[in-house]
Amino acid sequence: GSKLPPGWEKRMSRSSGRVYYFNHITNASQWERPSG
Rank of each mutant, 00 (worst) to 15 (best):
N23I: 03
N27F: 09
I25R: 08
I25Y: 12
A28E: 13
F22P: 01
H24W: 14
S16K: 08
I25H: 09
R11C: 14
Q30N: 02
P34Y: 00
I25V: 11
I25W: 08
G36S: 13
G36W: 15
P34F: 01
S15F: 13
S2H: 10
E9K: 06
I25M: 10
T26G: 02
P5A: 05
F22E: 01
S29N: 05
S15D: 14
A28F: 10
N23L: 02
I25Q: 09
H24T: 15
R14N: 14
N23G: 00
S29T: 14
R11E: 03
R33K: 10
S13M: 10
G36V: 12
P6Y: 13
K3P: 14
Q30E: 02
V19K: 04
G1V: 11
E9V: 12
G36Y: 13
G1H: 12
S29E: 07
P6I: 09
V19Y: 10
N23F: 03
R14E: 15
R14K: 15
A28T: 14
S2P: 11
L4K: 08
E9A: 05
K3Q: 13
R11M: 06
N23S: 05
L4S: 02
S15E: 14
W31T: 07
G36A: 13
S13F: 10
K10R: 13
Y20R: 01
E9N: 04
R18E: 07
E32V: 07
S2Y: 13
S29K: 13
R14L: 15
W8G: 00
G1M: 10
E32S: 13
G1W: 05
M12I: 15
P34R: 00
G7T: 02
S15C: 14
S35P: 10
P5D: 03
V19A: 08
P5F: 03
N27H: 14
T26V: 03
R14W: 11
M12F: 15
G36P: 11
P34S: 01
N27T: 06
F22W: 08
S29Y: 14
K3T: 13
S16M: 06
S35E: 12
S29P: 02
Y21W: 07
P5E: 04
G17H: 07
V19W: 11
M12Q: 11
G7E: 06
N23Y: 04
H24L: 13
G7F: 07
H24G: 06
P6G: 07
S15I: 13
G7Y: 06
R11G: 03
K10C: 09
G1S: 11
N23C: 07
T26F: 05
T26M: 04
E32R: 08
K10E: 14
S35Y: 11
K3D: 14
N23T: 01
V19H: 09
S13W: 09
P6N: 07
H24R: 14
P6S: 08
S2E: 14
K10W: 07
P5Y: 02
W8N: 00
K10H: 05
S15G: 10
S2G: 12
R14V: 14
N27R: 14
R14Y: 12
G1N: 11
L4W: 04
K10S: 07
G7W: 06
E9M: 06
L4D: 08
W8D: 00
L4E: 05
G1Y: 08
G17A: 06
P34C: 00
P6V: 09
T26E: 05
K10Q: 12
P34D: 01
G7V: 03
M12R: 15
P5R: 03
G36M: 11
M12S: 09
Y21S: 00
E32M: 09
R18K: 10
S13P: 02
S13K: 07
F22G: 00
T26D: 03
G36F: 14
V19F: 11
N23W: 01
